[in-house]
Design a protein around this nucleic acid. Structure first.
Length: 560
RNA sequence: GUCCCAGUAGCUCAGCUGGAUAGAGCAACAGCCUUCUAAGCUGUGGGUCGGGAGUUCGAAUCUCUCCUGGGACGCCA
């Protein structure tokens, strides 16, 4: 808003369009230089004049009520906001809008389908699925803040050859009682054993495929086993979701599309997109210089491409989305490129609305973690440790706290989620339990702690009224905070535009740091004329921190 | 071999569509709790931005090339 005003002033003086000028404007790296800056280097070339001189002349010419100073420095025109005016204004709007501050209506009336979490049945909930879950959840919350209607879909991995293998292993070595009492770990053991033995036994792979074929053709016993494995697994996943506070609108997994694939295959045939290759049926993507998409195996069984095609079409027909997002690991990017292209070849222009929001992998010693080799860290255990640690901290620092257990859960989970979300989405993360459990520095608990501090101040202030009209001196002291508060809507928009929650995580860290620094310097509850103004700042910080954390899917306890 | 990511301080990472002396956190060291939660604050040290070339008034940022790491590349998902 202020940037626009500055751009208009410049535009008038330079006889250029305000949009063009606004494009070029930036935020100075150092807050002391000002709040907005316009670099004159491009103009220097145009006008054949030193940028310093141009900047000086412009600065001399311009003035406006919202800017307390417009000065030239090193080829830039720097705009300094009037701290009192701008500060009071942002406080007013935060107090009025509260948690709606930073919201927008750009998504009004549009539906976004989002595929997230999607763990595999009979396998433990891995770190990779944690990423998909928390990133997807945060993106959902962000989209809702912009007015979109979001459909969260947990595309559970409950079908495929792996189940054949698992059943095969269960039939050979499994014991019912053991599996009943300890489902996922026991099934995992069987799965790992299958792969160990299959390494020296071609025959076994065959048997596994045969079991899957039976399952797909409706064999009663195979289906009974399958249902058992699925139900038991879902129960365990549900516990983790509850712990993390994540919910879904649909858990239609892969099996859900079993009866919806035939139609797709027929359609592909009818549109003459299928061709035979080495006994399998594929859609060629030669023009796009991509490998073909495999639709049907030589034994007639379907593949994940078939299923994902059916799912994409089903979602379009059921939800009428304008965008369909897939929060799935980077390793599957080829698959999603193929999926989109095949849909386009089928004539579905809406495939343009499909985006694969890939994310980096969780690596261990620089390598991918593998289920088969059993090198896996269980999310369940990590969360439990984090909660225990939070509980220990509470016992030490705030033993009188009411609701200790719930706060410990919120803080423990907050630590793990924040650690994941603060990394840029696309980057690989090196697994480190130590880092995930950390509570100091750039961490979730640090932000939560800062929020709790602010809340305590507000509680202690009791009936004293907040006063959004801050005096110049207060605004100057708290300027780093006020400046950040003004930037929150941009941070939200930025996070959504890039589908990247890490932008919010970084913002919230910056705001917490600015607040803690202020807290260290200024006694907030001193009784003087400015008390109401300081409280207004504290309250605004509490609102924005809580809302920022909420957008990350993290709770903001009032005390901890 | 082909394609897709990435390479910034000892470690983990920021650095927006190219712009003002490259920033945090952790770890190390030195300070700050008889007054609002020390899960905090203040300060110090620490960098050939993987190498090279190019575009530009200006490059960590864009292009090319090489090196390194990760991933994908037909019947797993």
């Amino acid at each position: 808003m202020y940037k626009q005003i500055a751009a208009e002033l410049l535009a008038k003086s330079l006889n250029k369009s305000a949009e063009e000028i606004e494009e070029q404007m930036e935020r100075p790296k150092q807050l002391q230089h000002g709040d907005y800056a316009f670099p004159c280097f491009a103009l220097a070339k145009e006008k054949r004049q030193a940028p310093q001189i141009i900047a000086a002349e412009l600065a001399n010419d311009l003035s406006h009520d919202v800017f307390s100073g417009i000065t030239a420095r090193g080829g830039y025109v720097n705009f300094k906001l009037d701290k009192q005016i701008a500060g009071s204004r942002v406080l007013r709007s935060i107090h009025q809008q509260r948690e709606r501050y930073g919201s927008a209506a750009v998504g009004q009336g549009q539906v976004v389908a989002i595929d997230l979490s999607s763990p595999n049945i009979a396998k433990p909930f891995s770190m990779g699925h944690l990423r998909s879950t928390v990133i997807g959840n945060s993106i959902s919350l962000l989209l809702e803040k912009q007015g979109y209607e979001v459909v969260r879909i947990n595309h559970v991995g409950d079908w495929g050859t792996q189940f054949g293998k698992l059943m095969c292993a269960y039939e050979k070595w499994g014991e019912e009682a053991k599996v009943r009492s300890n489902t996922i770990p026991e099934l995992l053991k069987l799965y790992i054993r299958f792969h160990e033995e299959a390494a020296n036994d071609e025959q076994l792979e065959q048997e596994g495929r045969e079991w899957f074929r039976k399952l797909e053709q409706g064999d009663a016993y195979a289906n009974k086993l399958w249902r058992w494995f699925r139900d038991a697994s879902m129960e365990e996943f549900e516990r983790v979701y509850q712990l993390m506070g994540v919910r879904f609108d649909s858990d239609a997994g892969e099996a859900f599309y079993n009866d919806k694939m035939e139609r797709v295959i027929e359609e592909l045939e009818q549109k003459k997109l299928l061709s035979w290759s080495e006994g399998a049926q594929v859609v060629r993507l030669d023009e796009q210089e991509l490998p073909p998409s495999l639709i049907k195996k030589k034994d007639g069984a379907t593949l994940y491409a078939t299923r994902d095609l059916a799912a994409a079409i089903y979602r379009k027909e059921t939800y009428g989305f304008s965008e369909s997002l897939y929060v799935v690991g980077h390793e599957q990017s080829l698959h999603f490129r193929q999926l989109k292209l095949v849909l386009k070849k089928m004539g579905y222009e809406w495939a343009d609305g499909i985006s694969h929001l890939s994310f980096g992998m969780v690596l261990q010693d620089g390598k991918k973690m593998s289920t088969r080799k059993g090198k896996l860290v269980l999310l369940d255990k990590v969360l439990k440790q984090a909660i225990q640690l939070a509980a220990a901290n509470i016992a030490k620092k705030n033993p009188e706290l009411a609701d200790k257990e719930e706060v410990a859960r919120q803080v423990g989970v907050g630590a793990v989620l924040f650690h994941d979300l603060k990394h840029e989405r696309i980057r690989d993360i090196e697994f480190s339990l130590e880092d995930m459990l950390r509570v100091e520095g750039e961490t979730g608990p640090y932000v939560q702690y800062t929020h709790a501090r602010a809340c305590t101040l507000l509680t202690k202030a009791g009936d004293i009224r907040c006063d959004s009209e801050v005096a110049a001196a207060i605004a100057a002291d708290a300027w780093p905070i006020l400046s950040l508060l003004m930037q929150f809507p941009e941070a939200v928009a930025d996070a959504i535009a890039n589908h990247d929650p890490s932008r919010i995580a970084k913002y919230v860290i910056d705001l917490a740091q600015a607040f803690n620094s202020y807290y260290g310097k200024v006694r907030i509850l001193d009784e003087d004329d400015d008390l109401g103004a300081r409280l207004a700042i504290v309250k605004a910080v509490a609102i924005v921190l809580a809302e920022g954390l909420r957008l990350l899917g993290i709770a903001a306890p009032k005390q901890m």
